[in-house]
């Protein structure tokens, strides 16, 4: 019972903080007399969200689409690479430096290359979202697989289990908590990728809409775009959190015992 009360208290505190930030923002703009070209008030932003909704909606759908497709590609490639790298010491040592090198390239820098290859539009956004979300997934899946207890591997080997048996019955299920933890990070990163690509080279998507809005000094609309992105990001994060607790509840048993 104490646990439940504690949970409610924690949730209410974070909700109060969010509301508090917006109230402070609103009041600061009103009292300080900040122009809406510099920083619009939350109420103005919500008003423009409602006003421009028919125009915003296809952009939001486009961004969500490129993000999810890119993310899906990232997940598939990430799992394949993660399993490959995690199952072999040699592959791990060989491929890891290259991966670190690739991951340390700012992903904005590859957008022009994608544009060069595939033209402006949807494809560069998808690819940027994919490439940015691959790395955390590879690292986490590889870690989950590489850290299987050696004793457990011995037990499986004495049963004459094949590599595939071990992977399917032990390593993969074991890496699921790592995988889902990385999904939550990767999906928010995928948003960054797709929006950056849209901003640079697309005529559709929230990123492009914000560029156009800022060039016409429609600052409330720019911020409305930010709100949309935040909303989509939080939504997907929450979705994967729920999936995580469903699939890998065994790794978070203390939380489950409380609620």
């Amino acid at each position: 019972m104490d646990g439940i009360m504690d949970l409610v208290r924690r949730k209410s505190a974070s909700i109060a903080l969010i509301i508090g930030v917006f109230v402070f923002w609103e009041l600061a703009c009103l009292i300080g007399g900040i122009s809406d070209i510099v920083l619009p008030r939350p109420t103005q932003i919500i008003a423009s969200l409602i006003e421009y909704w028919p125009a915003i909606q296809p952009h939001a759908a486009q961004t969500l689409f490129t993000t999810l497709v890119g993310f899906a590609i990232g997940v598939v490639i990430g799992i394949l690479f993660g399993v490959g790298i995690g199952s072999s010491r040699l592959a791990y040592d060989t491929a890891y430096p290259l991966l670190v090198g690739i991951s340390s390239i700012p992903k904005v820098a590859v957008v022009p290359i994608f544009v060069l290859w595939f033209g402006a539009g949807t494809v560069p956004a998808i690819l940027t979202a994919a490439i940015i979300s691959i790395f955390p997934i590879v690292v986490n899946v590889a870690t989950g697989i590489a850290t299987v207890e050696p004793e457990l591997e011995d037990v499986m080997k004495t049963l004459k289990a094949s590599k595939w048996d071990i992977l399917w019955n032990v390593s993969l299920p074991r890496s699921m908590p790592y995988f889902f933890a990385s999904l939550k990070v990767a999906v928010t990163l995928a948003f960054v990728g797709s929006v950056v690509a849209e901003t640079v080279a697309s005529n559709r998507g929230i990123g492009n809409m914000m560029m156009v809005a800022s060039s016409t000094f429609n600052v409330p609309l720019v911020f409305a775009g930010l709100f949309i992105l935040a909303g989509l990001g939080v939504g997907l994060y929450a979705l994967f959190s729920i999936a995580e607790s469903r699939v890998t509840g065994w790794a978070h048993r203390k939380d489950l015992a409380v609620t």
Binding site: E151, L152, D154, V155, T158, N169, P173, T248
Partner: peptide, 12 residues
């Protein structure tokens, strides 16, 4: 059949 000091039961 093999058993170690660490029971290594699969938690899931």
């Amino acid at each position: 059949g093999m058993a170690y000091q660490n029971p290594t039961l699969l938690p899931w």
